[in-house]
Every structure is written in structure tokens, then in C-alpha cells.
């Protein structure tokens, strides 16, 4: 039995949008950025047992288990209204679970015949890098699983030593560039981006940067200067890195950020054209 456990906010057993092939995606709880457009803001924080959700639950389906420091969730009476998530002051949820490497391995075994690999995502998965080392090592050692590809979907906001820990165990990384200028990055995510820019270049140098994504947020990161800087960065990376332009969508974002604007076709075209001028081929979704 491994001592380490990870906070897992959810598992999707069949995903066609998290890397090549059919993949099982494991979402880790907690993030070190706080993006305005986060669609899963309940995966940002960790539960501190404050009990606000327990009070707010209309069907009394939540209870604090003080001894084990966790929230007990009654699936029989829960009506999935998500009130608990909406009221949580920590951007957390009572639903994430502590899971061991063994737990996760047995989840993969159920679907192993149907998948090309697994993708770990978040939250910010690199915050649990030590767990990933054990988890990925276990996959690589397991005869029926060792052929699976392992992809990491990260915001890149960690020190380089963290990447070194799992570099050899991982097939590739998918990283977001939320903005190039630190000020704009701070506006969008609440944090600066020096580590992220370093990580992007480091992973590329190591031949492990699979995909770089830019989520387009009008009035924030679509200015000419900003896109030009991002283009310059991209042009320094290996041409094999897949570049994806993602239209920011308002679905599921927190109430306080509903004033954000989704990009219109003209705004998208403008950015696409700028990339084209810089001879960068970008896939838009």
C-alpha cells in the first residue's frame, strides 16, 4: 500500500478531446492560478471543513466527519443542485476524493482495452508531482498498462525541478499560455507568469512539449502587441508543438466574471491572421 494519496476531483473514462485517441482523464483537485474564465472553479481550492456547504444543502445530504477530516456526501438524497459548490468560499467542493495509486490503477484496468492512454489534468496536477511519480511508475511497471501513453495537462506554473521528476515517465505535456505580459497574466489569473514561460521553453527543449494553447479573452490578451509577443515565443519553439487557439466560452464561469466577453468571429479572425503572418499554423476550437 502506497502511503501517498491524491485529491481527485473526477475521472472521465472516455474523452476524445484530451490528447490523441480515446483517453481516460483524471482531474486533480487544487490549483495555483485563479483564472477568471475557469469553467471548473470548484477544483481550485481545498476544503477546510468550514461547513458553509453543509448549512446550505437543501436536502441535508452533507455532513462533516470531524474524526477523518472530510465531508460525507449522501448520494441517495443528493439532488445534484450544486448549491454546495456555488456557496463554497474556498472555490472547492465536498465531492473530491482521496485516492491512492492502487485506486487509480484499478480504475484504468476497467477500461484498458479501449484507450490509447491517460491524461492527468486539474486543477493543477503538478502540485501533486510526488504522487505523479509513484502513479506513473506504477503504470509503467504494470504489464497490461505499460503501453499506455501518459499526457500531462498543466498550467505550467511550477519550478523546473518539478518537471524533472516526471519527465522520463511522461510522453508529453499540454500547457496553456494565458498571456505573455506578466501584467495581463496577473489580470487573467491573479498571478504572474515567469515560471510558466520558463516551463514552456524547458519542456520544449526536452522534446516533451506536445501542445501549447491560448485561450482568447477579448480586451485582455488579444491586443496586437500581446499576440506578437506570443508569436515570437512560439517561433522559438520546435515546429512539432501543436498550437491551439481556444475561444473563451462563458459556460460555467463564476457569476462575478460574467461581464467577460466571448470573442466574436472578427476578433478570432484577426488573431488567426496575425499568427498566419508570423507563419504559425494554429488550430482553432
Amino acid at each position: 500500500m502506497n502511503a501517498l494519496q491524491a485529491n481527485i476531483s473526477g475521472i472521465i473514462k472516455s474523452s476524445v478531446i484530451d490528447g490523441p485517441g480515446n483517453r481516460m482523464v483524471i482531474f486533480f483537485q487544487a490549483c495555483n492560478l485563479n483564472c477568471m474564465y475557469c469553467h471548473n472553479s470548484h477544483t481550485i481550492g481545498l476544503c477546510n471543513l468550514c461547513g458553509v456547504c453543509v448549512q446550505a444543502c437543501p436536502t441535508q445530504s452533507l455532513k462533516i466527519d470531524t474524526a477523518n477530516k472530510r465531508i460525507i456526501h449522501d448520494t441517495e438524497t443528493c439532488v445534484h443542485c450544486d448549491t454546495c459548490i456555488k456557496v463554497c468560499p474556498e472555490n472547492s467542493s465536498p465531492f473530491y476524493k482521496k485516492m491512492s495509486v492502487e485506486n487509480l490503477i484499478s480504475e484504468i484496468l476497467e477500461v484498458k482495452d479501449f484507450i490509447s492512454g491517460i491524461t492527468v489534468s486539474g486543477g493543477e496536477v503538478m502540485l501533486q508531482a510526488d504522487f505523479l511519480v509513484e502513479f506513473f511508475t506504477a503504470i509503467r511497471k504494470y504489464p497490461e498498462l505499460k503501453h499506455l501513453s501518459i499526457l500531462v495537462d498543466s498550467n505550467g506554473n511550477v519550478g523546473l525541478d518539478k518537471w524533472d521528476k516526471i519527465l522520463d515517465l511522461t510522453d508529453g505535456f499540454m500547457i496553456d499560455i494565458k498571456a505573455y505580459s506578466p501584467q495581463i497574466h496577473k489580470q487573467i489569473t491573479g498571478f504572474s507568469n515567469e515560471k510558466i514561460l520558463d516551463s514552456i521553453q524547458y519542456l520544449d527543449k526536452k522534446g516533451k512539449l506536445d501542445e501549447l494553447r491560448l485561450v482568447l479573452v477579448p480586451d485582455y490578451n488579444n491586443g496586437e502587441d500581446e499576440i506578437n509577443k506570443i508569436s515570437t515565443l512560439i517561433n522559438k519553439l520546435s515546429p512539432e508543438v501543436r498550437k491551439v487557439l481556444i475561444k473563451m466560452r462563458k459556460h460555467g464561469i463564476r457569476k462575478k466574471y460574467t461581464s467577460l466577453k466571448e470573442p466574436n468571429p472578427e476578433e478570432i479572425r484577426k488573431v488567426q491572421n496575425r499568427f498566419k503572418e508570423a507563419v504559425i499554423s494554429v488550430f482553432t476550437i
Binding site: V16, I17, G21, N22, R23, F114, I115, S116
Partner: peptide
């Protein structure tokens, strides 16, 4: 399958082989 799978035919291949 949802339309999004068109970008990832390998996913269908995986599922057919599994089936």
C-alpha cells in the same frame, strides 16, 4: 459520437478495437 470526435479518429479506432 459527438461531432468533436472528427478531430480525433484515433479515439474511435481505440474503441472499435476494445469492442
Amino acid at each position: 459520437f459527438d461531432d468533436t470526435v472528427k478531430r480525433n479518429p484515433q479515439a474511435v479506432l481505440d474503441i472499435i478495437k476494445g469492442a
